[in-house]
Design a protein around this nucleic acid. Structure first.
Length: 340
DNA sequence: AACTCTTCCAACCGCTCTTCT
DNA sequence: AAGAAGAGCGGTTGGAAGAGT
């Protein structure tokens, strides 16, 4: 048989934590540790909280050396770089940023970095359009007939509602991580505005060599926590079945960027005739999906596709090793050091 | 001043994997 | 071995705070 139920849901408090609850939880854990059992912990200290909730409160707010807000530019770049490499694996990203929690990073990404990225992309778009005012005026006037209902795209309100792009094989080409990754790479692997433009891939600035993080996905080098590696060994796991092929625009298995990618995708889908500057986002996917087809090349200009570059992938596995981030280590300890 | 809209983040939810009985 | 709970994680949401009108 299994264990006892984790908690009495009906008799559990929800919502914001009071200072008294915080104090109780903090002082108990500092004195006794978690005891390896979060479920039993709230009863021990007389809190009407679910153990899960206690754990979250401790990890995200009460444990020592937590920093909130005030993300530095370097941290932005690290988050950006790791997101390029591994997607929304917030706990892994958090492990690279001492004092940051996965929840914080996740929030920061969703509320700021993502918008920063989209804003940057839009800036580029406007700059391009600015160089062609006649076309711009023509487009704007043509758009006057579009109903409010149809004109839902917040980023491209002046553009006509498009005919759907004829995707060759069912899948839209914003197939997730590879697309955003290319967008990030195009921006130079960094969010900050002072970054130099990417030139032949040589100026790409990645504070962390993401190749070391890619390793497990190459199925060749073990790294980080035991959990991902277990997942790799598990035939049911997404890791085991995924094809991680950075050069081929792969990473199809990565989840969690859906809404953001949908946003990006909408930018392009809504304006198939005018995708200046976004070609890089899906040109390669299309090439992959539809070898031999030239319909896209004919209807769209892929001038930048050839200049698409990827970050250098020279191994820096030693870097993570030096940080103690190897399979041998208890990665959870790195993420959530237990109070001593 | 009052109202609406937007932004931000703490906390919850639900899922997967691991551990225990 | 099977089934149930625990642990951990990522996605989502509710509401407070701030900004705009």
């Amino acid at each position: 048989m299994g264990r006892a139920p984790c908690c009495d849901k009906a008799n559990v408090k929800k919502g914001p934590w009071s200072p008294e609850e915080d104090a109780k939880l903090k002082s108990y854990i500092e004195q006794h540790g978690t005891g390896g059992n979060w479920i039993a912990l709230p009863q021990k200290i007389g809190l009407k909280r679910c153990g899960k909730s206690c754990r979250l409160r401790w990890l995200n707010y009460l444990r020592p050396n937590i920093r909130h807000g005030g993300f530095s530019e370097e941290e932005d770049n690290i988050i950006c770089s790791l997101y390029i490499s591994i997607g929304s694996r917030w706990s892994v990203i958090a492990a690279q940023l001492p004092g940051r929690t996965d929840n914080d990073i996740k929030n920061y990404w969703n509320t700021r970095l993502k918008k920063k990225l989209l804003g940057k992309q839009r800036k580029e778009q406007q700059a391009r359009r600015g160089s062609c005012p006649k076309q711009e005026m023509k487009r704007a006037s043509g758009n006057a007939m579009v109903s409010d209902n149809e004109n839902l795209n917040p980023y491209w309100p002046e553009l006509p509602v498009p005919a759907p792009i004829p995707y060759p094989n069912e899948e839209p080409r914003f197939n997730d991580h590879s697309s955003i990754r290319r967008l990030l790479i195009r921006l130079g692997g960094r969010f900050s505005d002072d970054g130099q433009p990417l030139q032949n891939g040589t100026n790409l600035h990645l504070p962390i060599d993401i190749s070391s993080v890619q390793q497990p996905f190459d199925h060749s080098v073990n790294f980080l926590s035991s959990a991902p590696m277990n997942a790799l060994n598990n035939p049911r796991s997404e890791f085991a079945n995924a094809e991680y092929n950075m050069e081929g625009g792969g990473l199809h298995m990565l989840q969690g960027q859906n809404s953001f990618l949908a946003e990006l995708e909408e930018m392009v889908c809504s304006n198939p005739q005018r995708v200046d500057g976004l070609e890089f986002l899906y040109a390669q996917d299309m090439a992959n999906n539809k070898p031999g087809s030239t319909s896209y090349e004919q209807s769209l200009s892929w001038g930048e596709t050839s200049s698409l570059v990827y970050p250098p992938v020279a191994s820096n596995y030693e870097g993570l090793q030096q940080q103690g981030v190897t399979q041998e280590h208890d990665f959870d300890e790195l993420r959530y050091p237990t109070p001593r």
